[in-house]
Design a protein around this nucleic acid. Structure first.
Length: 853
RNA sequence: GCCAGCUUGGCGGAAUUGGUAGACGCGCUCGACUCAAAAUCGAGUUCUUCGGAGUGCGGGUUCGAGUCCCGCAGCUGGUACCA
């Protein structure tokens, strides 16, 4: 640090306090049963989304959420809660592996170096984490329990009657075959289409594929044997149990849409003795079905298509198969398809309708076949218009001026539909489902867009599956819990082999588990570790259990109280973690059905140019630079002062200067420079109590009230504005009482803890009557409500809604008196001259509005 | 296309149930201090033809609308033929 003189000497005290907090473990919190645990206090669990420790270190986006939770944590501690506020590392990830491929350096080395950087940077910002609870997903002691939870999933099935996970042994006891059992596991093996990158030698998650493709890598679809997690079994619970959570509505909606529940019916159509089952959400429109569409890959296509159409069908199928997903969406504007030559019988009226194939119907959803009702479905309408297929109206819109063609709304009445005629859409839907059931040609059916979770990756730097394959019977088996953690073998060559089984196939010794058994070479995705880290914080060093029940019961009663992180995890991480949590809940291993009771998404911080920060744009702000120049408290304060936590907002370094000036003013209320240029206690500070209620004291108590309320509602920007006002009042005053000043420091402490500690320690040394402790150990100050009572209030006088005068009136003035005084105002007289007063509106304590014309 | 969110001075943003629009901060202007500058302190800062007009645009409800209702535009994010 240079000798440069700063407006207040943060360079002299910030690192000092960080060291003290670290050495004294100021923010350590004990678990039930441990010495120092105070069972009389309520608990508060405030959680950050833990970072991926990238090579480039912290960016200014990280401290935004972390400062917010730190303010809440410090505030709640001052309010008398046992506060659990931990931090850790989501440390598996592709960059460390890519770096290893390039340099040959083991990912552990890079990962640990990055973690060290992140830890140093976070400590530099003075966050009040209990560092004794730090976890890293790459730590073997952590990997062990990630694998243990995976085995829980592997050894479970979903009991649809009980609606919960149960041990696989129950199925064994029922005498089910090995195959039937394997088909019900929550972790199972299946062939699936995945994103495979031959040049990187790995599969990619859907959400990663575009990113890498943009960087010039090849990504193609390939059918591979993969591990899947049966998240679809939990679809209903994942929707229902979302409702009561205190989450942003937008995020709930995103999850609901992702799960994509729809209610409709399966209907069986006959085609030359073949049953073709279609799924529809609109069984009410069955009389309007004028043709049928099968997905090009549908099993029955070859069997039903007529000889003369075979060639065209084959050509179309081939063109669809060769198209990438990207091309398919790009071409989505124009509908394509081919007639099979075959016809199906509509079960409700016996009519024959032509069967087509088209790529707007997909295999993966529903039954891969649809009945087309062009009158009341936009896609069918488009297709029918193009290929000149008949369009029959079956719904009449209730709104008179709405055309029936392409009317997809539910506010309509059935027509041309035999026994449904005259019914509302909703009633017809129910009536048709009943009819289908009675006639054995269909049934009500609920579908979900949610797919099972593709859980395996062909990577080195991830948790290996604790699974071996028996080469004799071809089955997979779990290794025993005593063999956990199962770590990746030491390898020197991380180069991709091009083998879709992943780089671990090169570890020939490691693979051979026993005479007949070889190890699974896939690894788990990065999500695995982040699915349960919030639970490991509770009991990070437990070697017997992933968390001890009594500790879990205490901290997770009602779930995590506040979870703050970015919207980028709105669906995946938050959905995956909820899923794992529910499996653990089914086994009674966690006490709340949901992990995160309250969720808040902090808004993205943009560059000064209002663009997303990125190296290529050159608008990235490095927190280290800001801390050097203005100090950690200034960075913390600025990030909170920029605007509401949830909003997107641009970075302005000039703004940091503003809050830095504010902190300097706080400093200078208590401190002044003597002739030698040293900071000494300001002579305007006085130990004497002021006579009566001073303006400063009044302002301080108002500030305490406002700041407390604002922290509760996470409105940190307005809390800071209020403290600025309070400080300005103190700066303007000739004398400030020490006890009033200390109240401000205690309110400021969660925001700017270094400054608050330093100033308080200086004052505590000079004024023995002050409590001789660290300010972090002090309670949240309470305000005296009597100080806030106003005798008089400024009342606005309006004429016809326009501001014409302001009067200071007693707060308890009667309506009549207020009205009379308002009318007596000279300004009012001026504006009502020549008009008749029609009405006078009096809002006590606010305004008087005189209506005249 | 669909869904969600947003739109307030030169800029970031404030505004209980509808009740003084522009708190607080940045920037800018002027003043004090200084040989000078920086820093600091103080005053001012929506526009204005000084009547008024103003919260993306057009309507509406109301004594009164940034806030509520209807219609439209723009920006940001999500999603992509899910039957």
């Amino acid at each position: 640090m240079s000798d440069r003189k700063f407006p207040f000497p943060f360079d002299k005290f910030e690192s000092k306090w960080q060291r003290i907090w670290d050495d004294e473990k100021t923010f350590k919190v004990s678990n039930p049963g441990e010495p120092g645990f105070d069972a009389s206090k309520p608990k508060y669990y405030v959680l950050d989304m833990f970072p991926y420790p990238s090579g480039s270190g912290l960016h200014v986006g990280h401290p935004e959420g972390y400062t917010a939770t730190d303010i809440v944590a410090r505030y709640k501690r001052q309010m008398g809660f046992n506060v659990l506020h931990p931090m850790g590392w989501d440390s598996f990830g592709l960059p460390a592996e890519q770096y290893a491929i390039k340099t040959g350096q083991h990912p552990t080395v890079t990962t640990n170096a990055n973690i060290d950087t992140f830890r140093r940077q976070l400590k530099m910002l003075g966050f009040s984490y209990d560092w004794d609870r730090e976890v890293a997903t790459t730590d073997p002691k952590y990997v062990r329990w990630t694998q243990w939870i995976f085995l829980k999933l592997y050894n479970s099935y979903y009991n649809t009657e009980l609606q919960k996970a149960r041990p696989i042994e129950e199925l064994e006891a029922q005498g089910l075959s090995r195959e039937d059992i394997d088909n019900q596991r929550l972790a199972y093996v299946a062939d699936g289409m995945v994103n495979w990158s031959p040049d990187m030698g790995t599969v990619l998650a859907n959400e990663e594929a575009d990113e890498w493709r943009d960087k010039g890598h090849i990504v193609e679809r390939r059918k591979l044997r993969q591990w899947m997690l049966r998240i679809t079994a939990y679809a209903e619970r994942l929707i229902d149990e979302l409702e009561p959570l205190d989450w942003p509505e937008g995020i709930k909606l995103l999850q609901r849409n992702w799960i994509g529940k729809s209610q409709g019916a399966e209907v069986i159509f006959d085609c030359q003795g073949h049953d073709i089952v279609v799924y529809t959400t609109r069984p009410d429109t069955l009389f309007g079905a004028t043709y049928m569409v099968l997905a090009p890959e549908h099993d029955l296509v070859d069997q039903i298509s007529t000889p003369e159409q075979k060639e065209a069908i084959a050509a179309y199928q081939e063109s669809c198969a060769s198209k990438s997903d990207l091309e398919r969406t790009e071409l989505s504007k124009d509908k394509t398809g081919v007639f099979t030559g075959a016809y199906a019988t509509n079960p409700v009226n016996g009519k024959l309708i032509p069967i087509w194939i088209a790529d707007y119907v997909m295999t993966g959803y529903g039954t891969g076949a649809i009945m087309a009702v062009p009158a009341h479905d936009s896609r069918d309408f488009e297709f029918a218009s193009k290929f000149e297929l008949p369009i029959i109206q079956v719904v009449a819109p209730d709104k008179a001026d709405t055309p029936w063609k392409d009317f997809v709304g539910y506010d309509g009445t059935m027509v041309n539909s035999d026994y449904l005629d005259g019914l509302s859409v909703t009633a017809a839907k129910a009536a048709m489902i009943t009819w289908l059931g009675e006639n054995g040609v269909g049934q009500g059916k609920t579908n979900y867009k949610l797919r099972d979770w593709l859980f395996s990756r062909q990577r080195y730097w991830g948790e290996p599956f604790p699974i071996v394959w028996n080469q004799k019977d071809g089955n997979h088996y779990a290794i025993s819990e005593s063999e956990l953690p199962l770590l990746q073998p030491e390898m020197e060559d991380f180069q991709p082999s091009g083998d879709p089984r992943g780089p671990l196939v090169k570890a020939t010794e490691w693979i051979n588990y026993s005479e007949y058994c070889t190890r699974e070479t896939n690894t788990m995705p990065q999500w695995a570790g982040s699915c349960w880290y919030y639970l490991r914080y509770l009991d990070p060093n437990n070697e017997e259990q992933f968390v001890a029940p009594e500790i879990q019961n205490y901290w997770m009663d009602g779930g995590v109280d506040l979870y703050v992180g970015g919207t980028e995890h709105a669906v995946l991480h938050l959905l995956y973690a909820r899923f794992w949590h529910k499996v653990l809940f089914d086994y009674g291993l966690v006490s709340a059905p949901e992990p995160f009771y309250k969720l808040v998404n902090q808004g993205l911080i943009l560059g000064a140019d209002n663009q997303k920060m990125s190296k290529s744009r050159g608008n990235v702000v490095n927190p280290d630079d800001i801390v050097c120049e203005y100090g950690s408290d200034s960075l913390r304060l600025y990030e909170m002062f920029m605007g509401p936590l949830k909003e997107v907002k641009p970075w302005q370094t000039k703004g940091v200067e503003g809050v830095s000036r504010f902190l300097a003013r706080v400093w200078r209320v208590a401190m002044m420079e003597n002739q030698a240029g040293e900071w000494v206690i300001n002579s305007k500070l006085s130990a004497e109590e002021p006579a009566g209620l001073s303006p400063v004291r009044k302002e301080v108590h108002k500030t305490i009230k406002k700041v407390g309320e604002d922290i509760e509602s996470l409105s940190f920007n307005t809390a800071i504005a209020k403290m600025m006002e309070c400080t300005n009042t103190m700066t303007a005053a000739d004398s400030v009482c020490v006890s009033d000043y200390v109240l401000l420091l205690r309110a400021l402490n969660p925001f700017a803890p270094h400054l608050a500690e330093e100033l308080y320690s200086i004052l505590a040394a000079a004024y023995p009557e002050l409590e001789q402790v660290q300010i972090s150990a002090m309670s949240w100050p309470s305000y005296n409500a009597e100080f806030l009572i106003e005798n008089e209030k400024e009342i606005v006088i309006q004429v016809n809604g326009k501001l014409r005068d302001k009067l200071m009136l007693p707060v308890d003035i009667s309506r009549e008196d207020a009205e009379a005084l308002a009318l007596a105002s000279a300004r009012v007289q001026e504006f009502v001259a020549g008009l008749t007063i029609r009405k006078v509106v009096v809002v006590p304590g606010r305004l008087v509005n005189i209506v005249a014309n």
